[in-house]
């Protein structure tokens, strides 16, 4: 009954729902003008997460359903009577990005299989912040990445704090960052002693059936859109982790958002890579860091641009630099897999 081309994770070929084929755009001039994330949102000036929403909606196109979990991109972004979304959008709970994507995809799949809805590939994209994704929603995202019968993308916009609720530290906040729950004080200079979770690599390593995991940064908008398009085309559950500079949470002038994104990559703090069908590919400047063609800039250049690290003394910069050096010099896979052979 099964031939060698049969995907054994599908109950039958009839069940299989194809994806939209979204080819990469070769350069900014090839990107269409149509926007599906438009005016009406109320995010801060310089908000890179709002930029990510715009790029994601453009990349997915009109035959998409977006699920938005609680966070900045809900509360500040999607307000009654002034929704910015020109594609169908639904709120989901803080920890429910994974579950909302699975439920939406399952509903569509069942109804199309049973003849209750016209058969058509529809993109299902759930977005969550770092609080919703790396903290509260991690188990639901993990479960979603096991459901290979559903086509869905979970996009985590990581602005490195619970930024909507007044900048509280999350499991994805960098070591030492000032937040309203980790303020530097006279007795304790460093309150956040947790090292940032390695979320994308953890999910890629832990879910070998997941066909696509990537990291992006909106300072590279065409790359970001093309990675979203690849994630949606490849089929099955996929995950993209975006580092989004946040003027309010990181404390810098909004005009420098893109510059900080670039610096995060150039200092080696934010590695860009994709894991596609079990193959890792470093991307952009991160690839050139690994090959030695690009020398990492000192982390101090990135950290001193942000008020959240204003309390750092030399030892703090040194500690941070040493951790980043380890990441590229001692890790089993530089920038991705954080252990080495014994």
């Amino acid at each position: 009954m099964l031939d060698e081309n049969t995907d054994r994770n599908q109950e039958s070929f009839e069940d299989y729902l194809s994806t939209q084929v979204l080819d990469p755009w070769k350069g900014p001039k090839k990107v269409p003008a149509e926007e599906y994330y438009t005016s009406g949102h109320r995010t801060c000036q310089g908000c890179e997460s709002a930029q990510l929403m715009k790029l994601m909606a453009k990349a997915g196109g009109p035959r998409s359903i977006i699920l938005g979990s609680t966070g900045c991109m809900y509360v500040a972004n999607t307000t009654y009577y002034s929704t910015p979304w020109a594609v169908p959008w639904m709120h989901t709970q803080l920890g429910s990005a994974g579950s909302s994507a699975v439920g939406t995809a399952a509903g569509l799949r069942a109804m199309m299989r049973k003849g209750k809805m016209a058969k058509e590939p529809i993109n299902v994209i759930a977005v969550c912040g770092d609080g919703g994704g790396a903290d509260m929603g991690l188990s639901a995202i993990s479960a979603a990445l096991q459901h290979t019968q559903y086509n869905l993308l979970i996009l985590m916009y990581d602005n490195e704090s619970y930024a909507n609720t007044d900048i509280q530290v999350s499991g994805s906040s960098p070591w030492g960052a000032n937040s309203t729950f980790s303020p530097p004080g006279s007795a304790r200079r460093i309150m956040n002693r947790r090292w940032k979770k390695n979320t994308a690599a953890m999910l890629a390593a832990g879910h070998p059936d997941c066909k696509y995991v990537a990291t992006v940064n909106t300072a590279y908008p065409v790359d970001t859109m093309n990675m979203v398009r690849k994630a949606l085309t490849i089929g099955g559950p996929t995950f993209i982790h975006s580092l989004d500079p946040c003027p309010k949470g990181w404390d810098y002038d909004p005009m420098y958002s893109h510059e900080l994104g670039e610096l995060a990559v150039e200092t080696g703090i934010w590695p860009l890579y994709e894991v596609e069908e079990g193959k890792l590919k470093m991307c952009g400047k991160s690839r050139r860091i690994v090959s030695g063609q690009f020398k990492r800039k000192p982390v101090r250049e990135y950290l001193t641009r942000q008020g959240r690290f204003a309390h750092f003394i030399d030892e703090d910069f040194d500690y941070f630099q040493a951790k980043i050096d380890d990441m590229w010099e001692k890790w089993l896979i530089p920038g991705v897999i954080p252990f080495a052979e014994a």
Binding site: G98, S99, S100, V102, G103, K116, A140, A143
Partner: peptide
């Protein structure tokens, strides 16, 4: 769908119902 918690269990069907299932 065998969910990984009751919270996900109910969230999944909530969203399936929203698309008409």
């Amino acid at each position: 769908i065998v969910a990984e918690s009751e919270h996900s269990q109910f969230e999944i069907v909530k969203h399936a119902s929203a698309v008409g299932a």
